[in-house]
Amino acid sequence: METLLQQTVNGLVVGSVYALVALGYTMVYGILGLINFAHGDVLMIGALVALEAIRLIQLYAPDLGLIPTLLGGLGVSVIVCMALGYTIERTAYRRLRNAPRLAPLITAIGVSFLLQTLAMIIWGRNYHTFPQLVSTTPLEPVAGVFITPVQIAILVVSATLMVALLLLVNKTRLGRAMRATAENHKVASLMGVDTNKIIAATFIIGSALAAVAGVMFSSNYGIAHYAMGFMPGLKAFTAAVLGGIGNLGGAMLGGLLLGLVESIGAGYIEDMSFGFLNSSYQDIFAFVILGIVLIFRPTGLLGERVADRA
């Protein structure tokens, strides 16, 4: 029982990072119908930029407290990633908006690899230690479950951001414009919505969320490196599909569920498959779920829109 509870907590923490990244995928997909492959790599850039900023802050303002330093690093990284998201959209995707549908996808893969290569050139190929500004020492166990302050922070921050995003999309003018654009570009622009601006805004918001997710990821594991974004990116995409792509609530639900499935699955797969499978198959859960959902329920758990919108 203790083990199951612990696995649940593990899963929720990983899942909330997935959820935050999944929001970025789902927003872009909802509006452009594009799988932004590079989104996971924005997370990576976010983590590495934050690392660099924190190093500088620690160098020039060593007396700043731990939390202000972290917030400073986070701030820099969010701004850089917003700019990066905008640049990517502007230079790589905008011109392809009306191109054949494979073109933007291939470009997106190219952008993803380009970001990784650039990070490799700037930060090298080795793993970097991410400064421990929020403690990773576990608190007193509750019911045998260990949890660390940084994990609690991850849960709180992602929940807050998700609520904020829901409010933004559902209650503000910008959000209404975004929903209109997602519904139908042409009609939205006829109604006076500057769709170019709205799409740019979508990329900027998504990138900011990815930056936060990157910093959380690195704070939790204490590492950052050039290839760290790819797998979480892919899994977050799975989460977005699982929840129903284009649906914000779905992305959150999908992220949490995927985290739980992975964690509990890896913990119990050996018993469930009578020793045939084992934890070496941890990484296939996401892909299997992805396949099953797309084949049997392409609209995902919460998706209402038909996904066929070529």
Binding site: I35, R101, L105, S280, D283, L290, L294, D308, A310
Partner: peptide, 23 residues
């Protein structure tokens, strides 16, 4: 099972398939 998916969904499912085979 996958060919009725549209372009980019197909892409991502095949990507998953490639990884599953490797794993």
């Amino acid at each position: 099972p996958t060919l009725r998916l549209r372009g980019d969904y197909l892409a991502i499912v095949t990507l998953g398939f490639g990884e599953i085979v490797r794993i």
